[in-house]
């Protein structure tokens, strides 16, 4: 695996390997000495064209626990003022000898361009691009789902080696603008899970009928009929609510009424069902405090799993093909 750009590029075997490697990484994290020597002497650059302290810290922690040298490179720029040019930045990183570049960008496709434009020969790890993809988020979601619904329930430890066949996942909210939703639909489908997207029609992309999932406009009906094993709530961006070019729904109150996960809807979930959220949450909008803090919510655990999954991704990208067994962990 040279790059990790999109979950749509992953085969089932690759996806399972990533999850299994993440499980091994997680196991090392309960040891007293968490740091592994695996990537000593290698350089990971965190290249962030968009602010995301949470994601950056997660990648930084992952890289450091693998003993890599980490350089944080914040190159802010918006579509209005281009700011630091992607190409010049790539050429700089190339000159610095970066072994892997973790890139977060406001523009869909920027990591793909970094990987393919010939500016740079480091491995590229997409840490979220525009409204396109966020592969490590989907992997940590899948990891969390597998641990709870295959591993713990099935009594098979962490669910190592297993896919997600037979599980049902509802993804609820702003699908249109969500890289998390796109990444999850592709990965969950590859892993054999059944996915239903739930959103108001204004927040469903044109062309969604070609996606490997079902679409519903009604959360209550989906909870009753689809009976999901996992419910993933997407963050609603504040700018989607305003009038004019925003105005995707009439009011926050109406959104919450039809698409929010509150105590009433929580009570209708199956006993084993779990609740995920990629964070940061808008409490009281897409998720109520009761739902967010309930024992079904695995939201805090997602953060911890994020480090293990990112360790696995960096490891598989940088330590090469023969690292799959990973016995030296």
């Amino acid at each position: 695996m040279k790059h990790l750009l999109s979950t749509a590029d992953l085969s089932k075997d690759e996806a399972v390997l990533l999850l299994d490697t993440a499980a091994q990484m997680a196991a090392t994290q309960s040891r007293e000495i968490k740091k592994l020597p695996t990537l000593r002497g290698r350089t990971v650059v965190n290249l962030f064209f968009e602010d995301s302290t949470r994601t950056r810290i997660s990648f930084e922690t992952a890289a450091k626990r693998l003993s890599a040298d980490v350089i944080n490179f914040s190159a802010k720029g918006s579509s209005v003022s281009k700011g630091e040019s992607l190409k010049d930045t790539a050429l700089t990183l190339h000159a610095m000898g970066a072994d892997a570049v973790v890139v977060r960008h406001w523009a869909s496709g920027a990591p793909y361009q970094l990987a393919h434009a010939g500016w740079l020969d480091a491995g590229v790890l997409n840490a979220g691009d525009g409204t396109h993809q966020h592969p490590t988020q989907a992997l940590l979601d899948a990891y969390t789902i597998r641990r709870h619904l295959v591993g713990l329930r099935g009594g098979a430890g962490e669910g190592v080696g297993a896919d997600l066949a037979g599980l049902k996942v509802a993804i609820v909210g702003d699908v249109l603008h969500s890289r998390v939703a796109r990444a999850n639909v592709a990965l969950l489908h590859t892993l054999g899970a059944e996915v239903t997207l739930v959103a108001p029609p204004t927040l469903v992309p044109v062309g969604v009928e070609t996606w490997p999932c079902a679409v519903s406009y009604h959360l209550d009906q989906t909870l009753a009929e689809f009976q999901p094993d996992a419910v993933m709530m997407l963050r609603v961006q504040r700018e989607r609510m305003s009038g004019g070019a925003g105005g995707f729904f009439p009011s926050p109150l109406e959104y919450t009424r039809y698409y929010g996960l509150d105590a009433r809807r929580l009570a209708r979930l199956a006993d084993h069902a779990i609740v995920l959220h990629p964070g940061p949450m808008n409490r009281g909008l897409e998720i109520s405090a009761e739902a967010a803090d309930s024992d079904r919510a695995v939201i805090v655990e997602q953060v911890a799993n994020g480090v293990a999954v990112r360790m696995a991704a960096l490891y598989l990208l940088m330590a090469g093909e023969d690292s799959a067994e990973g016995n030296d962990l």
């Binding site: 496709g109 525009g130 396109h132 796109r182 992309p205 044109v206 070609t210």
Partner: peptide, 15 residues
Amino acid sequence: NEGVVSGEIGLTGWP
């Protein structure tokens, strides 16, 4: 163009 491709690759559509 707004369609299957824009939805997949996450670029804002021009219908």
